[in-house]
């Protein structure tokens, strides 16, 4: 039982981090219609900045720089590249982001090389144990950070002008611009938010039990894609729930791999996608997604 609870606790905390990444996918998608395949390298950029800066300027200032850097990177990708597509549509934008991802990841891989850069987080490698259930301190903090961030996001979208404008623009950009809302501005805000969320997730993911920042960190953003799709493409709540589902399922699949050996080794890698495909079979628009309204 304690083993199960330990797996569950780990799964939930991992799921919350996935949620942070998946929400970034949702915000970029709803604010600019872009399927952001470069989200992983933006995440890596944020984590990389923290890894190289925590020594000279201290961990917390480095985190601030990392978050701002990733946010700025997102804004620049949108302003310089996405908005200048020769044929702007979701398909070409998605492929553009594949190109951006290749460029960023190649450059970061060249800089990092074979090293694993420590993230320098003050919580180190401690573990919390409550009644036999153990959880790395870093993961407990990650869960707390994620919950606070989600609360801030809720406040932004429900209570501020900027947030309401972003939701209006996402729901019907054409009409929103008739209200004087500048779609270029809501788009930039969306990319900045997504970049910041990715950087936060990057720092949390590079903390213990992970060894530090390595190019493979970018791939972790891919693990959030099932969470995003599961939640339904355009729903922030869906992305968070999707993250939790994928986190827990992954943790359980890894924790009970021995019992599930008939399904083969390395189950943790494939289970999120298997869950995603099963959900799509039943609900093509995801758990929280709106069905596309057909206009004739």
């Amino acid at each position: 039982m304690t083993y199960f609870l330990t797996q569950l606790a780990n799964g939930l905390s991992y799921g919350l981090i996935l949620g942070l990444i998946a929400v970034g996918f949702v915000i970029v998608f709803t604010s600019t219609g872009v399927l952001n395949f470069a989200h992983g390298s933006v995440l890596l950029t944020g984590a990389y900045l923290v890894a190289i800066l925590h020594d000279p300027i201290g961990f917390w200032p480095a985190v601030v720089v990392g978050i701002l850097g990733a946010a700025l990177l997102g804004v620049l990708i949108n302003a310089v590249l996405v908005r200048n597509l020769a044929e702007p549509n979701p398909g070409t934008a998605a492929i553009l982001m594949l190109g951006v991802d290749i460029l960023l990841l190649t450059e970061l891989t060249r800089r990092i090389g074979n090293r694993v850069l420590p993230i320098g987080a003050p919580w180190g490698a401690d573990v919390i144990a409550i009644g036999g259930v153990t959880l790395p301190t870093s993961r407990a903090i990650a869960a707390g950070v994620a919950v606070v961030v989600f609360a801030l996001l809720w406040y932004l979208f429900a209570r501020t002008d900027t947030g309401v404008a972003m939701r209006a623009a996402a729901a019907d950009g054409d009409t929103a611009s008739l209200m004087g809302i500048r779609l270029s501005r809501t788009g930039a805000t969306g990319w900045a938010l997504a970049g910041a969320l990715a950087a936060i997730a990057g720092v949390l993911l590079a903390s213990f039990p992970a060894p530090g920042v390595a190019p493979t960190l970018a791939i972790s953003a891919f693990a959030a894609i099932p969470a995003w799709v599961l939640g339904g493409f355009d729903s922030v709540v869906g992305a968070i729930v999707g993250g939790l589902i994928i986190g827990v399922v992954t943790a359980l699949a890894v924790g009970y791999e021995a019992e599930l050996h008939v399904l083969g080794r390395g189950l943790g890698e494939v289970v999120p996608y298997a869950v995603m495909i099963i959900v799509l079979l039943v609900r093509p628009s995801g758990l929280f997604g709106r069905k596309e309204a057909v206009r004739v």
């Binding site: 590249l81 200048n84 597509l85 020769a86 044929e87 070409t92 492929i95 553009l96 594949l98 190109g99 951006v100 991802d101 290749i102 460029l103 190649t106």
Partner: peptide
């Protein structure tokens, strides 16, 4: 490779 993708899609 990455630059080629960007160049084609932008120009």
């Amino acid at each position: 490779y990455g630059a080629a993708i960007l160049a084609v899609l932008l120009f």
